[in-house]
């Protein structure tokens, strides 16, 4: 699960990294940096779809992200062994 500020919300952390760390080095090919939060869930589920739905559900119910300001992307990473 990747949680980021909405596209048109400011991201002070990403902006500062882009400006103060990268631009200052004279690197101009990097146009912007966005910061976010990354959570990895190990889910017991029969199907990928099922795992995705479960994580989506708890993300919404437990306010793991705030839809007022965040966008949340959930992807399947693969299967555990």
């Amino acid at each position: 699960m990747i949680i980021e500020n909405k596209k048109l919300a400011r991201d002070p952390e990403g902006e500062t990294i882009a400006k103060e760390l990268i631009e200052r080095r004279g690197i101009s090919t990097i146009k912007s940096v966005r910061s976010g939060k990354y959570l990895r869930f190990l889910v017991e589920a029969g199907k990928e779809e099922e795992a995705l739905r479960l994580v989506e559900k708890i993300a919404n119910e437990l306010r793991i992200f705030n839809p007022v300001v965040h966008i949340c992307n959930i992807r399947i990473m693969g299967e555990s062994r």
């Binding site: 500020n5 909405k6 596209k7 048109l8 919300a9 400011r10 991201d11 002070p12 902006e15 500062t16 007022v68 300001v69 966008i71």
Partner: peptide, 15 residues
């Protein structure tokens, strides 16, 4: 601008 892209509350930058 889709509502999805714009936050309803501003993000401040204390720095």
């Amino acid at each position: 601008d889709s509502e999805l892209e714009r936050p309803a509350v501003q993000v401040g930058n204390p720095f």
